[in-house]
Write a protein that binds this DNA or RNA. Structure first.
Lengths: 191, 191
DNA sequence: GGTGAAGTTCAAGAGGTCTTGAACTATATG
DNA sequence: CATATAGTTCAAGACCTCTTGAACTTCACC
């Protein structure tokens, strides 16, 4: 949630090496912003958006040029996206280089990754609260009212858990309804 | 989502000037981590947690000492928390200094602020997508398949919107059910 | 109104994350 | 097998947010 005050015009024109049509540039930036909102890297969103909008596989070199990124950055971003199953690496006929194509909706990736993160994160927090409760009760000299507050505080983690699950359910419903045809291919491919 | 690999022991002992009982330190850090997960500052969570757990109003100086923060930082953090309505500033009898107390659940703040952020943010993204769609159609030379992909992409913002609303609803339900008694006082006070 | 303590502000700096680019590895082709 | 091109890795540094601390303002009390 850093950048929601950027000027749309600037974002659209400054960004690339220059070859992107304006409408494409705007869309690519918009996806970058949404994806950053969800705690991913802006450039992961931009790369996916470019591949998805082009409706054909591009080489790493083309992505570099279109988005003004370095070779190293593109390599790492593509790996992330591939690991999450939202782009596909294809060997094109005459070419030596791999090409990369996007077929799947990004929300799949968002909900998948958020679910993993959330699981590890909240498990840890819960342990911490349990430990704190154990110690506080053992101490003996802690006022009852404060112990109660500690108990209530521990529900913070549980509330967060429930809220995240509610979000994930919504996200998956939406994606499932709208993109079911596209998803099958990738669901089969994954793992 | 940076820090879910910190060692609980370290977090509990290193942090403060040293006066915090261990159970309190652990709980304070845990709240700091949850709040950071939601895109707030870790120290906002730590300050709120300390005040809430103490069950009495503390002065800025005490907070500084207990959490090992600077005067300036405490001043700004308290202002944020007060603006969000999760702490209260009270003038104590004999003392010259203000004291600060926490009565409300933090999830209230999380859902309130997220709602504001989300509204501004997604309105902007939607505009961007509209603009991109307008330009792409005007261009004329864009393949139909690509225009369709752009349309689908625009639903990203709408899906995000719906998912965030689902979360906010859940969060508010939880808080409402569990802390209704505490909430009234502050609801009346706000604005 | 003067005094001292509390509170606020903000430029400079600390602390993190993300990107770069050069060295390195893998792969296709003649 | 040699060569060229693609792809990967990671230390150095760019970038950006958060904290600090000193100067400044406000406030209560005498």
């Amino acid at each position: 949630m850093k950048g929601y005050l950027w000027p749309a015009e600037a974002a659209a024109t400054e960004t690339a090496g220059g070859t992107l049509p304006r409408w494409e540039a705007i869309a690519v930036e918009a996806v970058g912003n949404v994806i950053e909102f969800w705690g991913f890297k802006r450039n992961q969103g931009r790369v996916w958006a470019l591949l998805y909008l082009r409706d054909q596989a591009l080489s790493a070199g083309e992505i570099e040029r279109e988005l003004g990124l370095s070779k190293g950055a593109v390599s790492m971003l593509l790996r992330d996206l591939e690991r999450w199953g939202v782009i596909e690496r294809v060997r094109s006929p005459g070419e030596a280089a791999w090409h990369y194509g996007a077929e799947t909706d990004l929300m799949k990736m968002v909900s998948l990754v958020l679910e993993q993160r959330e699981a590890a994160f909240l498990a840890r927090i819960r342990e911490d609260f349990s430990e704190a409760q154990r110690l506080a009760h053992a101490a003996g000299d802690v006022a009852k009212a404060r112990l109660e507050r500690l108990d209530r505080m521990a529900t913070l983690a549980e509330q967060t858990d429930r809220a995240v699950r509610a979000f994930l359910k919504t996200a998956r419903l939406d994606v499932g309804g709208m993109f079911s045809a596209l998803r099958e291919r990738v669901a089969a491919r994954r793992s």
